[in-house]
Amino acid sequence: MKIAVIGGTGLIGSRVVAKLNAAGHEAVPHSQSTGVDVISGKGLDEALAGAQVVVNLTNSPTFDDASPAFFRSSMDNLLDAADRAGVGHVVILSIVGVDQVPELDYYRAKVLQEQILMAGPIPYSIVRATQFMEFMDAVISWTADDDTVRLPATPIQPIAAADVAEAVAEVATGAPLNGVRAIGGPQVFALDELGRITLAHKGDPRTVVTDPTAGMFAVVEGDVLTDPDAHLAPTRYADWLS
């Protein structure tokens, strides 16, 4: 099966491409570095030629109120090109609970991306994942100074990027869901506690202060958690750290 992976050189995309090719498929990575621009549409027709499936893993360069415009333009261009190419299945990666946090510009933008896909002409699948373990350093950096890291006690269910890629590859090679598959890590932590675990593992002497107003996840309550029907990935946070 020929699968075009748009955003195929990034954290998840590169892993998806590797897994698909190892399974005997022809997965081709595409990104700005390979001449594909989802905003202008440049290179999309060539990238999608002959593909049965398109996996779209591109992401907005910002998390602010500019992100809806990115997802609208990129999805409109991608779906138009996929329709012209006769693609039979489009897959995107989204976020567990994305429709439950309207206070966040980025979450509203991802909901818009899902809505555009669902309203489009091509069978589709949406994979919603909880927060990536690989993003924990960035989350810590948002509210850190030389001595302290301020984090809310928001419940979080981190998942390893490798497990996300495995799920995306599995969905991409199956029949279109015309719906959502939710995936998450096997454990739930309070975000402040996860910060303490992370810093202790790194030997970082900074103190984590519980602050319900700190950072992007301050407005998120239990929405980052999976429901009982979700697929739980195998990788535990301590094993990932190691």
Rank of each mutant, 00 (worst) to 15 (best):
D83L: 14
D83A: 15
D83C: 09
D83E: 15
R84N: 10
R84G: 11
R84S: 12
R84H: 12
A85D: 10
A85Y: 01
A85I: 00
V87F: 13
V87S: 09
G88R: 14
G88I: 06
V91Y: 08
V91D: 07
V91I: 14
V91Q: 10
V91K: 05
V91R: 09
I92S: 11
L93S: 11
L93M: 15
S94Y: 07
S94T: 01
S94H: 08
I95G: 08
I95P: 00
V96K: 13
V96P: 06
V96L: 09
G97L: 08
G97N: 12
G97C: 13
V98I: 15
V98Y: 04
V98G: 01
D99Y: 01
D99S: 15
D99I: 07
D99T: 11
D99P: 03
Q100C: 00
Q100V: 01
Q100F: 00
V101H: 10
P102S: 09
P102H: 13
P102K: 07
L104V: 15
L104A: 15
D105T: 02
Y106F: 15
Y106P: 04
Y107T: 15
Y107Q: 14
R108G: 06
A109S: 15
A109E: 05
A109M: 11
K110W: 01
K110H: 07
V111S: 08
V111Q: 07
V111N: 06
V111T: 13
V111M: 11
V111F: 14
L112N: 02
L112R: 13
Q113Y: 06
Q113I: 12
E114N: 11
E114R: 00
E114S: 07
E114M: 01
E114F: 01
E114P: 11
Q115M: 14
I116E: 00
I116D: 00
I116F: 08
L117D: 00
L117Y: 00
M118L: 10
M118S: 09
M118H: 02
A119H: 03
A119I: 04
A119V: 05
A119T: 03
A119W: 00
G120I: 03
G120E: 00
I122S: 12
I122Y: 07
P123S: 08
P123V: 03
P123R: 07
P123A: 12
Y124L: 03
Y124S: 06
S125T: 09
S125Q: 06
S125L: 09
S125G: 05
I126L: 10
I126C: 08
I126W: 05
I126P: 08
I126F: 10
V127E: 11
V127L: 14
R128L: 04
R128Y: 06
R128S: 05
A129M: 03
T130N: 02
T130F: 04
Q131P: 01
Q131R: 09
Q131N: 12
Q131G: 06
F132C: 05
F132I: 02
F132P: 03
F132G: 09
F132N: 08
M133N: 14
M133R: 00
M133G: 09
E134D: 13
E134I: 13
E134G: 08
E134K: 04
F135G: 11
F135T: 14
M136R: 07
M136G: 04
